[in-house]
Amino acid sequence: MKRILALYRSSVGKKALMAATGLLLFGFIVSHMLGNLKVFQGPEKFSAYAEFLRTVGYPLFARGQLLWLARIGLIVAVIVHVVAAVELTMMARDARPTSYGRPVHLEDTYASRTMRWGGVILAGFVIYHVLHFTFGTVHPNFEPGDPYGNVIAGFQSVIVAISYIVVMGVLGLHLYHGIWSALQTLGITSSELDRPIRTAAGTIAVVIFLGFIAVPVAVWSGVLR
């Protein structure tokens, strides 16, 4: 624990924790996307999947226990990721109190430049998304226990569907720079691996983007109803 704290105190360590939590969240995103795609198998399979999430681990864990454990883990990961990001951003602000008269933009991609704002958008989205589909607070006609129906109903609104699609674009960009950056931060890259990793990160980002928008697009175009 002492070591983790010492690590956390250094900029490199903070960045490493961000990378590690980022990769963890990336894993969650992949499984979440795969879960989402079950919606195309129809309401029964989709509901069964939702039920599976609650019963997995039974009888070692009681119903929903493991899910909550995972949720707690995710929440901790998000908090570490965000807190470190905020601290590091403050550090960067402090490090250059006077800005340049002519902006200096070397080598940065749109993705790398938008990591911070992208992160803020994603954080906001997560809150909305949980209120939307988990608690149903902001869902106009939320039916507990009917995930399939909630999805179909939720995406009826064009504004909601479009904003989901836009945010998934932001997620794609965040992942494109984030995946490569996390590997660099953890020291896993090298000059030979650089190109392949960047290409892989780009491909993954596109696949995830497509995988996630498939649902709202399908609902909206009437493929799913």
Binding site: A92, D108, W180, S181
Partner: peptide, 19 residues
Amino acid sequence: VAQMDAEGFGYCTNHGACQ
């Protein structure tokens, strides 16, 4: 690294502008 932090430099976001 500790000294680098203490001097008030920012942290690395892997942009590659430095190289």
